[in-house]
Design a protein around this nucleic acid. Sequence first.
DNA 1: GTTAACTCATACATGCCTGTTCGACTTAGG
DNA 2: CCTAAGTCGAACAGGCATGTATGAGTTAAC
Lengths: 194, 194
Amino acid sequence: MTRPLAKPSRRADAQHNAERILRAAVSCLSRDPDASVSEIAQAAGVGRVTLYGHFPSREALVEAALTRVLAEGEELLAGLDLTGDPRDALRVLIRSSWLLIAQSSAVLAAAQAFLPPERVHELHAEPARRVDQLIRRGQEEGVFRADLPASWLTSVLHHVMKGAAADVATGQVDRAEAPRLISETVLAAYRVDG
Amino acid sequence: MTRPLAKPSRRADAQHNAERILRAAVSCLSRDPDASVSEIAQAAGVGRVTLYGHFPSREALVEAALTRVLAEGEELLAGLDLTGDPRDALRVLIRSSWLLIAQSSAVLAAAQAFLPPERVHELHAEPARRVDQLIRRGQEEGVFRADLPASWLTSVLHHVMKGAAADVATGQVDRAEAPRLISETVLAAYRVDG
DNA sequence: GTTAACTCATACATGCCTGTTCGACTTAGG
DNA sequence: CCTAAGTCGAACAGGCATGTATGAGTTAAC
């Protein structure tokens, strides 16, 4: 908050490598929450020792990866206009960020193995709030069903997105079709009236 | 098929311990697919060496646990009357076996780490077929939407059940309410008409 | 061009998990 | 009651992952 750049004096290639490591960590951890440091280093095209030069431990790396992917998500969500019809807003949200949210959830699962719950909550509270508020607004405006708790509707959205990501990974679902499948499914599940 | 009892001459307590181990394996593996042999043995109230006396390796144990939970699922599904209105049949299916199916999926995930894909398919083909056929019949009869592929609808059902199981584990959802949440959500998602 | 920063391979200590062996103990079953 | 089947703890070997140290080679930056 106070200082945007932690270490202004660092060689360009070092900064660049740190970026590649974080990107590789997000990618590997979203496929396997137990991915080893060696795997991540290899995926980043970097030696294992170099990785430890940037992050003191595996836990620190996972937390940094989580912070990064959540920050990306927050930035993306903040740039969206979610003020119109909640159904349209949800479609926009899904189309633009389903993959990022699914990845975030996976990395978050990896971090939950060692991170204290309050730290986890503090990290993903901001982006989660945006989704949650959209769903609650939809309920208040009467376009999303209110006979099920908002927390469950949120949970369903997350699980369907994660499921779609898993199906894309196994080849059961085409990546380009995923947003449509998710939107059609979730919006139908959210619709009012029995 | 030919012989219901593999080893008719075994001491009663040994057979009993094998049962407890399998039960513990299903329980532990559905919480953590990477659960260690020590954890499972401890959960079964048995020494680790005793466990190895019943199952030659961790992989064999996981496969046995998977076979068992899938057999339970198959038996349960076979005892259900799924011939009426597909919507009612799906409600019955969810109410009676959502937890078992969620556990099966989790154990299956643990087994997929080392089991060849054809073996996996061969193991859970039977119970999966029952669910899949119910969904396809619903589509053919026009009560389930057909604008999304049946494989996706099946996938959604599984992911929502697994998600509910996860939410129950974290305390976000009351176990007794889970079947209702799942049914209401999935049936709404399956409904025809835009 | 010189230097400090950075990278990397190798190697090592440590710890956890798997799978096995051994010997002593307990108990089911005739 | 006797015996074989079963259980158990301790201890060992092998493998894989984490984290650290070293030293030589590369490269960014001034």
